[in-house]
Nucleic acid binder design. Structure first.
Length: 150
DNA sequence: GCCAACGTTGGC
DNA sequence: GCCAACGTTGGC
């Protein structure tokens, strides 16, 4: 059985359309320990929702697939990258990323406001006040309920 | 180890 | 643009 997850991204930075174009991409740039730990817990075959944040209609816009387990995030080693972290080195990497592959873009975004209306989803981390995790787990019941909305 | 200051996230 | 919430930093 696969596990389910959710990845947030600002579409102006990297959108579901960008992932569709690229096919597969490293989910690099995550600089939060809890989010990193979730990526390290992922297996090949896990599926994830793609969430657009900080945009006109925040919400879930599609589905992607984990195709490579966590490995050191190369952007942390690159002093020219906006994600550079001098405390991370190839010898003792601090940040990791998985690779994700595009699976599907919903014909319509499932807006955050719609998610808040669904009783099954009330315990999702995504919907909790003040939570900001950019990578988070999704329960199988929640996964199915959201697919029905899409 | 405490905690104030600061920076970031992200909905609205 | 506002601002609440939260994580991180660094002085002590």
């Amino acid at each position: 059985m696969p596990n389910y997850w959710l990845f947030k991204s600002e579409p102006q930075s990297y959108s579901i359309d960008d992932l569709q174009r690229d096919g597969t991409t490293p989910w690099s740039g995550v600089r939060n320990y809890q989010a990193r730990n979730f990526m390290q817990a992922m297996s090949v075959g896990d599926e994830a929702f793609f969430y657009h944040s900080s945009c006109a209609v925040p919400g879930i816009v599609g589905v992607c697939l984990v195709v490579r387990t966590a490995y050191p995030d190369a952007t942390a080693f690159d002093s020219r990258s906006e994600y550079y972290d001098p405390k991370s080195s190839p010898e003792t990497p601090r940040w990791f990323n998985v690779d994700v592959k595009f699976l599907r873009a919903f014909s319509d975004v499932v807006p955050l406001t719609r998610l808040r209306e669904i009783a099954t989803l009330t315990n999702m981390p995504l919907l909790q006040r003040g939570q900001r995790l950019s990578v988070q787990p999704v329960r199988a019941t929640e996964w199915r309920a959201i697919l029905k909305l899409a």
